[in-house]
């Protein structure tokens, strides 16, 4: 067979292989995944959209909401949803005028101290959806659909959007939407979404710096610096940087490493060469210190300690296997006592 014939056959074989494998892939991924049952979809598909798609039927009153609130919500959010001790405040900062205009006026003020949930949220569906899926904080999804209506009714009452005797239902929630204080407070006129899917989306980013390289401005003026009192607010930065390399961290607070200094006995063990053959938790050549502590636990401590000090000094074999422990002539009796006491106490690292 000629070389060109071989090449042609090879090419057709490759072509046939591709032609053969492609239909198999076109069949999809056989036996991967299975159809979801209607009950499964119902259990998990709990999202409620801004058009109220997915909103369950139900209702709840402001007064019922207050009962649930005081039992399950007030401890974190405060009695009136105003607390900022655990989370940011939910209620406050909106006015009757905002309910008319659909824009929360306080959001234009740079001196306004907080931004509450009701100052920001444009869609009441968001609140129903989120309370149902995520609240209470420590027992999410434990509220019934009606309880969610009731809690939301109470919140809307705190925000002075609905009256005290209001009943929130899957029907009346549409009226509430028309009274949300910041309902027209959102804009999609920006370029931070990767498609043209929203009204007014900008085609270009809103900043346009240029890559100037030389003499770009006459001088560099500092607009802001870290206040001196804030330098230590994040602990000792020296302990947040590596011990080696071209830089060190600045010392901005007390050393915590001193408090975590290793046990002097551990240092003594290292200095005396004990750790060549022993480790605290792992058998190396000799037994681990944990093993030794375990063997002598509950025995007369003074006798045990004295016997072990002698063994450490004189060395020996047989107690833990065939490898002998050499005599420790350079180790003082006092150091040996320190080490033995430390080993019998479990060889703590600190």
């Amino acid at each position: 067979m000629s070389r060109s014939c071989k090449a042609a056959l090879l090419a057709s074989a490759v072509g046939a292989l591709l032609a053969w494998t492609a239909p198999a892939l076109a069949d999809g991924f056989a036996n991967v995944g299975r159809p979801a049952t209607p009950a499964e979809i119902k259990a998990w598909d709990i999202d409620v959209g801004p058009d109220f798609a997915g909103l369950p039927k139900g209702s709840g009153t402001v007064s019922r909401g207050m009962e649930i609130w005081e039992e399950k919500c007030a401890s974190c959010h405060g009695t009136f949803g105003e607390s900022n001790s655990v989370f940011n405040p939910l209620v406050g900062g909106t006015t009757a005028e905002d309910i008319k205009t659909g824009h929360v006026a306080a959001l234009k003020r740079t001196d306004f101290p907080a931004r509450t949930t009701f100052m920001k949220v444009a869609t009441v569906s968001t609140l129903y959806d989120y309370i149902r899926r995520a609240m209470p904080w420590n027992a999410p999804k434990s509220l019934s659909d009606d309880d969610v209506y009731a809690v939301l009714a109470y919140l809307l009452n705190l925000a002075e959007i609905v009256p005290d005797d209001y009943t929130l239902t899957d029907a009346t929630i549409r009226d509430v939407q028309k009274r949300m204080p910041n309902r027209d407070g959102m804009t999609t006129a920006h370029a931070l979404w990767p498609g043209p899917d929203f009204p007014g989306m900008a085609a270009k980013p809103d900043t346009a710096n240029a890559a100037c390289m030389t003499n770009c401005k006459p001088k560099a003026e500092l607009a802001s610096q870290l206040p001196e009192h804030a330098r230590g607010a994040h602990g000792n930065i020296a302990e947040q940087n590596r011990l080696i390399g071209p830089v060190r961290g600045q010392r901005t607070g007390p050393d915590t490493a001193a408090a975590e200094a290793p046990s002097p006995a551990l240092a003594l063990a290292e200095q005396s060469g004990c750790l060549s053959c022993h480790a605290v938790d792992t058998r190396v050549v000799g037994p681990s210190y944990s093993e030794i502590a375990a063997r002598y636990r509950g025995k007369n401590s003074n006798e045990t300690a004295d016997a072990l000090v002698s063994k450490v000094k004189a060395g020996g074999d047989g107690a833990w296997g065939a490898v002998p422990m050499p005599p420790q002539d350079d180790l003082s009796i006092d150091d040996a006592k320190t080490l033995v006491a430390w080993i019998l106490s479990g060889a703590p690292q600190k």
């Binding site: 234009k108 804009t187 931070l192 979404w193």
Partner: peptide, 11 residues
């Protein structure tokens, strides 16, 4: 600055 919130800012 005008008091409006940009929504769906992602990139």
């Amino acid at each position: 600055p005008d008091g409006q919130h940009r929504q769906y800012t992602s990139i």
